[in-house]
Every structure is written in structure tokens, then in C-alpha cells.
């Protein structure tokens, strides 16, 4: 991460415990603004838990989180969550049509989503307008993920957290989503943080990479660290993934 980059999110000695169970341990690091950072690590490493801290669905047990240059607690939770959007791991949908789901973020503010905006959004994520009237239960996994991302975009977030959105998808849909992530990043300048199981994706799409294990941040830097890291745990993790 170059010195010229500004931090979109910064962690200072952040720990998080739940029910006596230490989930995140003394995390210090940052996500650069306007870039794509991938977050890799075995399942159970604490990646999702880290995301929930970033948009204040939970709070750290100790340590400080900064969004931009202000402490996370100084934001109103509602404002913060609109600014730091999150697409959940399982692309949870409320019942009903794609349109209804896309309209949800504005509905929560008592506003309506104009049909033109909805049409534009489905196109941005690579679906066509006819999807707006489809029931979300009839969508494939990839289509649901796309709708979930489009729905998060309605709030025009400055930072977008994407949680394993491609894990359950076939190769073609994965490629689609990869392209989409790059497209959104370029079109809106959105800071993207993307949890992925697939190291090849991290390598190809991410500008930067964080490697997490057992609640710790064990490596962070340009994505090439996945190949060049001197740390034995990182090497072992990368090898285990490649084979």
C-alpha cells in the first residue's frame, strides 16, 4: 500500500470477542481509498466479523476504527451504514420482486426508487430490465448476488464491503462479478473490500490484499505478496489453496 494512498478504513489494535470467544485479535491495518482490496483467509478466520465492525453492525471490544479520518463512533449508525455498504455472504433477499428489493434502501428512508434508476442499476450489474419484475426466489445464485450488489449501490456508498459473493458461483458467473467489481470501482470510485476464497481472484482483481488467520491479520500489501510473502503461514495457506 503506497504512501500516496489515503485510508478509507483504518484499524488500530482492534480486538473483538463474542460470548467469551476471541474472534479478532489486535488488528492494525488499513484499506486504501478508491482501491480494490481483497481479504483472504481460511473460513473461521474472522473476515465476516471484521466486516460487521466496519459498518457498525457490531462494535469492537477494544481498539479504534476510523472511517476516513473520523472515529467510527462519531458517525450516526444510519448515516455510517449508508456510507459503508455491505453485500452479505448469502445475498439475503426480502420477499417479493427484484424491484421491491432494489427499492428497499430508499423505502427505509420513506422515499421511492424511480423506475429509471432501478433500470440503470440492473444494467450496471449486468442484468436486463425484465429482471425488475422477477420474483427473487426464481433467481440463480449469481443473479441474486448481482441484485444484492445493486441494492447496496442504491445508497451510493463510498465504501463497499463484499462478503464471499462469488463462492457459490460457477466460473462464468464468477468472471461476471469480477468484471462488475472493477466496473463499479472505476465508474463510481468506490473503495471496494472483497472477501474471497479464491486466491486467483485476489491476485487478478485486487490492488491490495489482506491475509487473515485465526482472528489475526498476518500479511497485508500489494496483491503480489500472495506469491512473495516471506511468512511461512502465508506460504502454507497459498500452497494449500493452489493444490
Amino acid at each position: 500500500m503506497s504512501v500516496n494512498d489515503q485510508a478509507a478504513v483504518r484499524f488500530n489494535k482492534v480486538s473483538y470477542a463474542n460470548d467469551g470467544h476471541q474472534i479478532l485479535k489486535n488488528i492494525t491495518g488499513w484499506f486504501p481509498k478508491g482501491r480494490i482490496t481483497t481479504l483472504v483467509g481460511p473460513s473461521g478466520a474472522g473476515k465476516t466479523s471484521l466486516f460487521k465492525l466496519c459498518n457498525s453492525l457490531t462494535s469492537p471490544t477494544s481498539g479504534d476504527i476510523y472511517i476516513g479520518d473520523k472515529k467510527i463512533e462519531s458517525y450516526d449508525p444510519v448515516e455510517l451504514r449508508r456510507m459503508v455498504g455491505m453485500a452479505l455472504q448469502n445475498a439475503t433477499m426480502i420477499g417479493g420482486t427484484v424491484m421491491k428489493n432494489l427499492a428497499l434502501p430508499l423505502e427505509l428512508q420513506g422515499k421511492e426508487l424511480p423506475v429509471e434508476t432501478a433500470e440503470e442499476l440492473v444494467k450496471v450489474v449486468g442484468l436486463d430490465e425484465s429482471f425488475l419484475e422477477r420474483d427473487t426466489r426464481d433467481l440463480s445464485g449469481g443473479q441474486r448476488q448481482k441484485v444484492s450488489i445493486a441494492r447496496t449501490l442504491v445508497n451510493r456508498p463510498e465504501i463497499l464491503l463484499l462478503d464471499e459473493i462469488t463462492s457459490a458461483l460457477d466460473r462464468v458467473s464468477q468472471q461476471d462479478i469480477e468484471d462488475l467489481i472493477v466496473r463499479i470501482n472505476q465508474k463510481y470510485g468506490t473503495t471496494m473490500i472483497w472477501i474471497t476464497h479464491n486466491l486467483q481472484q485476489a491476485f487478478n482483481v485486487g490492488d491490495y490484499t489482506w491475509v487473515m488467520m485465526d482472528g489475526e491479520l498476518i500479511e497485508a500489501g500489494e496483491s503480489s505478496i500472495l506469491e512473495h510473502s516471506k511468512k511461512e503461514r502465508v506460504q502454507r495457506f497459498v500452497k494449500g489453496q493452489v493444490e
Binding site: 459498518n55 453492525l57 444510519v78 448515516e79 451504514r81 449508508r82 455498504g85 455491505m86 452479505l88 439475503t92 426480502i94 428497499l104 434502501p105 427505509l108 428512508q109 441494492r151 447496496t152 445508497n155
Partner: peptide, 9 residues
């Protein structure tokens, strides 16, 4: 959690 994460009360 979805609704909260989208800025719902």
C-alpha cells in the same frame, strides 16, 4: 441485519 446494514432503524 440486512435492513440494518442498509441504514434501517
Amino acid at each position: 441485519e440486512l435492513i440494518l446494514s442498509l441504514g434501517g432503524t
